[in-house]
Design a protein around this nucleic acid. Structure first.
Lengths: 338, 338
DNA sequence: GACTGGCACTCGATCACCGAGAGTGCCAAT
DNA sequence: ATTGGCACTCTCGGTGATCGAGTGCCAGTC
């Protein structure tokens, strides 16, 4: 159905449209790319491509622009891998050098991604499934109100307030000792398992407060860390100040909702390589005129979390994908080395 | 110079322009407000107001719009205090009810402010100067790399990685004990003072690692907490999609820079009541076509931090000021009660 | 002396119109 | 299968013409 020349024409339309932001006609196409055929032939091919749904024209006497389906074919089969520029490589190094802790790494990563892709960047906090519990601290703040602090072997610290149900200081100290003895050194999943059996070994008077505390610890070891997402590069949205309603507004709204962001990244970053969601492929309705380029990051088989960018469907996919891939790999390695 | 009628006219111009977003003429003015004089008289007065710099016209044969100076006079002398609506009062209660910890309070506050003002909201993390140090934890993560965790009496937890310079586990444990003995129960300022003399009491072999750690603790007790700011309601920027260059873009850029946000809030929130910076009064150049309404919040004399909103100069100042004031007071009380 | 009605004037906004230009689809010829 | 030619369509930019809101000024009135 689609011979090589038609594919070449589609590729040319995508690249030209992305760089010029304007519908591209048959004449301009043969001028800029040496296709070796006349505009009339190109027109015939374009008619076929339009029938097949790869391109469309905004109005009768305008050039063609790619459809979501066209971008999809381009990304899957036509895009040449574009190597990073030297400047971009250097940017990655300088941005990350001197990062202090995980927070800092995430902040720098989001800035970096936003800068080299010139899009809005989204980075999920790393969830280190191989990290182990380093310390559980249990504190009394005021009578009845306490605080659980969980530290894992990567230096990540999470805390949550807890109702101590009037336990005495001695009981709290006792419980702290038992908790640490039970789970320090375990992975989160192992710790959760161990905690669910811990209650049986406790003296009865500790049961009420212990169940409150273990429940909180279990929350901390599982759900919470994954729900943190950082965004950056929002001013990049101003670069396409047209399409206010279709692009800028929905993106801004999505950025306020952690849940939405996690869905965008989560479904996109499941596999090992860069994932692209184009327009309507997007799981979140209002973002159907934008694309998401995302990648999981981590080390070896240990995929920790996702990062990505969101931008207009008319973006430079090869460059963007290369950038996201490079940053994801670099940050993964950086975190693995500590 | 400005008699009562001229002031009434200025007030009418401001309110009409804010609600209609369009230059207001002499005819419309006498129609909507019963000024008891003819349009011609109003025109004469408007000419005077324009000479004095309170209003201006975008072009000949258009109505008048307030200048920054006009808004300033309005805010200072003409604005009637507008009580909150019942719905707003209820919103404040429901939004804050059930807040878990300080993080949660801040997140809810920023949402609340954004929703009832329909502007972009900025909330600084509270700095509780009366809070005392509750616990200092010192952990070894890997040989040489450690972590300092500081918990204060409000349940706030801060951490920072620290270089342990190859100290042994025993030395670390020793140091942890000494640190806690020294500063637990002290206010941050007292703790800093105490720490600076702590070194003298230590055995010499602890000196190198102790100075690293105390320096880190001192950073944690002073600088860091104040530098955290949360923003929300960014989609509200889309409500004035015109003025892309003058308003939306600069605001988005400012929101990415914590330093800028702190400057906006910091200089604005120094006093006890709501502060308004209109247009050029703003300390940050690119935001000179927007206004900032901010307030410190806290309890009694203990001012903890600031919150505020940023929006176009043409905003409903009475409502916005009332909302910011109400939220600031409520959150202050809420935090004081714990 | 302050206010008012009247009037000429200004200027942006809206609309219709027109020509230019880009681009297409189709068809007959190669 | 490809191509040159041609008629057709539709957007875009520019040009007047008109409309109406609003002003400034001035002479008249209370």
């Amino acid at each position: 159905m689609l011979d090589d020349r038609k594919l070449a024409i589609l590729r040319a339309i995508v690249t030209d449209y992305v760089s010029s932001q304007e519908p591209v006609g048959s004449r301009a196409l043969v001028d800029r790319h040496n296709l070796g055929v006349s505009p009339a032939t190109v027109r015939n091919d374009m008619a076929v491509l339009e029938d097949e749904g790869y391109i469309t024209q905004p109005h009768t006497s305008a050039g063609r622009i790619p459809t979501d389906k066209g971008y999809r074919l381009f990304v899957d089969r036509l895009a040449a891998v574009k190597p990073l520029s030297v400047a971009e490589r250097r940017a990655i190094q300088t941005f990350m050098a001197g990062a202090l802790d995980v927070d800092d790494v995430v902040r720098r990563t989001v800035r970096l991604l936003a800068q080299i892709t010139q899009q809005v960047a989204i980075v999920q906090y790393p969830v280190l499934s191989s990290a182990t519990v380093r310390l559980i601290e249990l504190l009394v703040l005021t009578p009845g109100r306490g605080l659980v602090i969980l530290v894992n072997s990567t230096g990540r610290v999470d805390q949550r307030p807890v109702d101590l149900l009037g336990a005495t200081d001695e009981q709290v100290a006792d419980l702290r000792g038992r908790l640490n003895a039970a789970v320090v050194g375990l992975t989160p999943s192992a710790a959760v398992e161990r905690l669910s059996t811990l209650l049986d070994d406790l003296p009865p008077e500790l049961h009420p407060v212990a169940s409150m505390v273990t429940a909180t610890v279990m929350e901390l070891t599982t759900a919470d860390p994954a729900t943190r997402v950082v965004v950056g590069g929002v001013p990049n949205l101003t670069r396409f100040g047209d399409q206010f309603e279709t692009t800028v507004k929905p993106v801004l709204e999505a950025l306020e909702e952690q849940v939405v962001l996690l869905r965008l990244l989560g479904e996109a970053g499941g596999t090992g390589d860069v994932t692209v969601r184009i327009g309507h492929e997007n799981p979140y309705e209002p973002l159907q005129s934008t694309s998401v380029v995302a990648s999981a990051y981590g080390h070896a088989d240990d995929l920790w979390a996702s990062m990505g960018i969101v931008g207009p469907t008319r973006m430079d996919y090869p460059s963007t994908m290369a950038s996201v891939r490079a940053v994801a790999r670099y940050v993964g390695r950086f975190l693995a080395e500590g």
